[in-house]
C-alpha cells in the first residue's frame, strides 16, 4: 500500500503545469489527491511525474458574473458546502457537497479534481449534468468550454485531452424560478453511493415546469442524465402521478451493474427511488420534508 516512485514538481503557474504534463504522456496533475493517492497506493496508477497544481491561487476563485457562477477548480468540497455564495447561488451543488465522502476528504479534495475524475458514483458530475454546467479547460492550444453533456464518458473517461487542465466550471445561478432536489443512498453516509439523483428544474409563474433535468449517481458506467423526464413533466404543474410517470420512463434506461453492494435490479431500484425523492423535493411534493433528510 505504498505509491510507486515518481517525480514530483510544484507548478508555479497554470501554463507551467500544462507544459510539464504535455511533454510527458505519463505525467499527471495532482491537487487534493483524494482519488489519485489511493489509486497510487493500490498501484492502479503509476505516473512518471506528478505536477502539483494545489498551490495555484488563480484556480481558487469563486465569482459571479451576471447569471453565471464560475467555480475555480481548486475550490475544496468543504468550501462548496459552506461558502455563503455557494449556498445562495448554487444550492443544489452546495447540498450535494455534504454527501461527498467524509469531512476529512472534503477538507482536502478539490471540485475540479472530482469532476475530472468522472466517477459514476460521484455527486458533482450528477449536479453538473442536471444544471447543464460548462467545463472550462486549458491546454497549450488555449482555453475551451465544454458543455458537460459532452464532457463525461464511461469508466472515468472525459473529453479532456492529455495535457489539458480543467481550470473551472461555469454554473447557471440559482434564481426564484429554479427548483432543485437531491437524494442519495449509501450503506454508510459518505461512502460511494449505491444510487442517487440530482434534479434541477424551472417553473413559470403558473407553477408549470418549463425545464427539468436530472443527473444520476451510480446508474451506469459513467455519470448519466435521466432520460424521458421531459415527456412526463414539461408544460404542466407537476403532481405525484407525473413524478411516477417520469421515474418509470427514466428507470427503463438505467444500466447499473451488479457489484458487492447489490444486484443490478436492486441498484436500479435505488437509483429510481432516489430520482423519485429528488423530483418530489424539487416540485415541493415532499411536504413532510422527509426526503431531503433521508439517507
Amino acid at each position: 500500500m505504498k505509491p510507486p516512485p515518481f517525480e514530483y514538481v510544484v507548478a508555479t503557474s497554470v501554463d507551467h503545469a500544462i507544459d510539464l504534463v504535455s511533454t510527458d504522456e505519463d505525467a499527471k496533475f495532482i491537487a487534493g489527491g483524494q482519488s489519485l493517492i489511493p489509486l497510487l497506493s493500490l498501484r492502479f496508477a503509476s505516473p512518471t511525474v506528478l505536477v502539483d497544481i494545489s498551490r495555484l491561487s488563480e484556480l481558487r476563485d469563486v465569482r459571479r458574473a451576471g447569471d453565471v457562477l464560475h467555480i475555480g477548480a481548486l475550490t475544496r468540497h468543504a468550501e462548496i458546502q459552506k461558502l455563503p455564495i455557494m449556498k445562495q447561488d448554487a444550492p443544489l451543488l452546495s447540498a450535494a457537497a455534504g454527501w461527498v465522502a467524509h469531512s476529512q476528504v472534503r477538507n482536502r479534495g478539490t471540485f475540479g479534481g472530482a469532476v475530472a475524475h468522472s466517477d459514476s458514483a460521484a455527486e458533482f458530475p450528477a449536479v453538473l449534468l442536471a444544471t447543464e454546467a460548462t467545463i472550462v479547460a486549458r491546454s497549450r492550444d488555449g482555453e475551451r468550454r465544454i458543455p458537460c453533456q459532452d464532457f463525461f464518458g464511461s469508466h472515468f473517461q472525459t473529453a479532456l485531452n492529455h495535457g489539458e487542465l480543467l481550470t473551472g466550471v461555469e454554473l447557471p445561478v440559482h434564481d426564484d424560478s429554479t427548483r432543485w432536489g437531491f437524494s442519495e443512498f449509501a450503506r454508510r453516509k459518505g461512502d460511494y453511493a449505491i444510487g442517487g439523483a440530482a434534479v434541477s428544474a424551472r417553473v413559470d409563474e403558473q407553477g408549470r415546469c418549463t425545464r427539468v433535468r436530472a443527473g444520476l449517481i451510480a446508474a451506469g458506467p459513467g455519470p448519466t442524465s435521466a432520460e424521458g423526464l421531459g415527456e412526463a413533466l414539461l408544460d404542466r404543474v407537476v403532481d405525484e402521478s407525473a413524478v411516477s410517470d417520469a421515474v418509470a420512463r427514466a428507470e427503463r434506461h438505467l444500466t447499473p451493474e451488479s457489484n458487492v453492494h447489490g444486484t443490478k435490479e436492486y441498484r436500479r431500484a435505488v437509483v429510481a427511488e432516489s430520482l423519485r425523492r429528488a423530483l418530489r423535493q424539487a416540485f415541493e411534493l415532499d411536504h413532510a420534508g422527509t426526503d431531503r433528510r433521508s439517507a
Binding site: 489527491g33 483524494q34 493517492i37 497506493s41 476529512q104 476528504v105 477538507n107 482536502r108
Partner: peptide, 10 residues
C-alpha cells in the same frame, strides 16, 4: 487546523 487523512496526502 482542519482534519485530513494523512495516508491520502504526500
Amino acid at each position: 487546523g482542519e482534519p485530513v487523512r494523512s495516508c491520502t496526502m504526500l
